[in-house]
């Protein structure tokens, strides 16, 4: 099935949950609203002719320029994207979903943006969501065990956010 057919089918089934669609880029992607994500994912996994049963990767990308002089160079407004790379083992096709979030929930600085967890759809998401939470600072609602995975549990901040500042010291160890 072509990407365009898939998009119209999703739009028909989910309406407003499907946002911007970018089919011309290297890896065509579809934007999904945060709230509609679990339903769309379950549909993509369970439909026999789609069968996206393999979640390759979840990545968090933070779009922000802390330096106000360079802020104009940023492509689009400041945002955090969560990118889902899906793969179908039986049909050998891939699909990219994106959830675009504000950098802070309700624009309250310090409150992490939220996405529903898909860990009950693909178990891969369990650790991947923990990693995205740890490094990119996205809160996954409904995740069974949302703890830091790579950084120590008492680490402050989320290192892959563009406004992250390395702490001066950690338990008496000089960091910078």
């Amino acid at each position: 099935m072509g990407q365009q057919d898939l998009v119209s089918r999703l739009q028909e089934a989910f309406g407003d949950s499907i946002g911007a669609v970018q089919l011309e880029s290297i890896d065509p992607w579809i934007e999904i609203s945060a709230d509609g994500l679990p339903d769309v994912c379950r549909y993509l996994r369970d439909q026999p002719d789609l069968k996206f049963d393999y979640l390759s990767c979840i990545s968090g990308v933070d779009y922000f320029e802390p330096d106000p002089k360079k802020a104009a160079k940023l492509d689009g407004s400041p945002r955090t994207e969560v990118v889902y790379h899906l793969w179908s083992v039986s049909h050998k096709t891939s699909l990219v979903l994106k959830v675009i979030l504000p950098r802070w929930k309700d624009d309250q600085e310090g409150v992490l943006p939220e996405v529903p967890s898909v860990a009950d759809i693909w178990r891969t998401a369990d650790w991947h969501e923990r990693e995205v939470y740890d490094l990119s600072g996205v809160h996954f609602r409904g995740h069974p065990d949302l703890r830091r995975i790579l950084c120590p549990e008492d680490w402050q901040g989320h290192p892959l956010r563009k406004d992250y500042e390395m702490p001066l010291e950690y338990h008496g160890i000089r960091c910078r």
Partner: peptide, 14 residues
């Protein structure tokens, strides 16, 4: 702007 590595062992270990 962002470089991400999806590790195979990460998933295998999970």
């Amino acid at each position: 702007y962002r470089a991400r590595a999806r590790s195979s062992c990460f998933c295998n270990l999970s």
